[in-house]
Simulated assay, not measured.
Amino acid sequence: MSDRLADIHAIREVVALYCRGVDRLDLELVRQAYHSDGIDHHTGFDGTVDEFVPWLAKSLEFLVGTMHFIGNHHVDFVGDDVAISETYLMATHWGKPEQEQTNFTTGARYVDHMERRGGRWAIAERWAVREWTRPDVFVAPERPGPRGRRDADDPLSVLLKRFGL
């Protein structure tokens, strides 16, 4: 059973890695979440990971930021090295104030065909299933303080670099 718990944890880490990559605009992290021959099905996209990453970069370039919250997560194993992972999430997207159409939150599920290859769990095929979307209105921060960034000056990036990670 402990091996299965380690597998579940590793699979959940793949999902978290993907979300961090999107939110920090670190497309190499996004790519790492997939096997090299991985397939993705998103709203407006179907194709290989090599096609998905540039499509995602273009989709995110007009946004100021995104934030993914991972919720319920369940894994069904199909043998030792294949699993079906379902992850509930909410993802908020925001652009500049004049770009109202870019400000929305969506409820979705990642339905992932995961495989362990060479000891590494990663996405073989993903369906990003959108359940609902609602428009959002964003306001300026109420006070000065730390803000998320999508570059090397983000507090997480600074801290990771400080410790050589």
Rank of each mutant, 00 (worst) to 15 (best):
M1V: 12
S2F: 11
L5I: 09
A6I: 13
D7C: 11
I8W: 08
H9R: 08
I11R: 05
I11Y: 03
R12I: 07
R12K: 11
E13S: 13
V14T: 11
V14G: 15
V15N: 10
V15L: 07
R20G: 03
R24N: 08
L25T: 15
L25C: 07
D26F: 00
D26Q: 07
E28Y: 04
L29D: 01
V30R: 07
V30P: 07
V30C: 08
R31Q: 11
R31E: 03
R31M: 05
Q32F: 01
A33M: 04
A33I: 03
H35L: 06
S36C: 06
S36Y: 06
G38Q: 02
G38K: 01
I39E: 05
I39R: 12
I39G: 01
H42K: 04
D46L: 14
D50M: 00
E51H: 02
V53E: 12
V53C: 07
P54M: 00
P54S: 04
L56M: 06
K58G: 05
K58H: 08
K58W: 07
L60D: 02
E61Q: 14
E61W: 05
F62R: 09
V64I: 11
G65T: 00
G65R: 01
T66G: 00
H68G: 04
F69G: 12
F69Q: 15
D76Y: 05
D76V: 06
D76I: 02
V78F: 13
V78R: 14
G79D: 00
D80S: 15
D81Q: 15
D81A: 11
V82T: 14
V82A: 14
V82E: 10
S85Y: 05
E86M: 08
E86H: 11
E86A: 14
T87L: 05
T87S: 09
Y88R: 07
M90Q: 13
H93R: 10
W94K: 11
G95S: 14
K96F: 13
P97L: 07
P97T: 10
P97C: 15
E100Y: 13
Q101T: 14
T102G: 10
T102Y: 11
N103K: 12
T106I: 12
G107E: 14
R109K: 14
R109P: 09
H113G: 08
M114T: 06
R116A: 02
R116I: 04
G118K: 09
G119D: 00
I123D: 03
E125C: 06
E125I: 07
R126N: 07
A128Y: 08
V129A: 05
R130D: 04
E131Y: 00
E131I: 04
W132Q: 11
T133V: 13
D136E: 06
V137W: 11
V139F: 10
R143N: 09
R143D: 13
G145E: 04
P146S: 13
G148T: 06
R149S: 02
R150H: 10
R150F: 03
D151I: 01
A152D: 14
D154G: 02
D154T: 02
L156E: 08
V158G: 02
L159R: 15
L159Y: 05
L160K: 08
K161H: 11
R162M: 10
L165P: 10
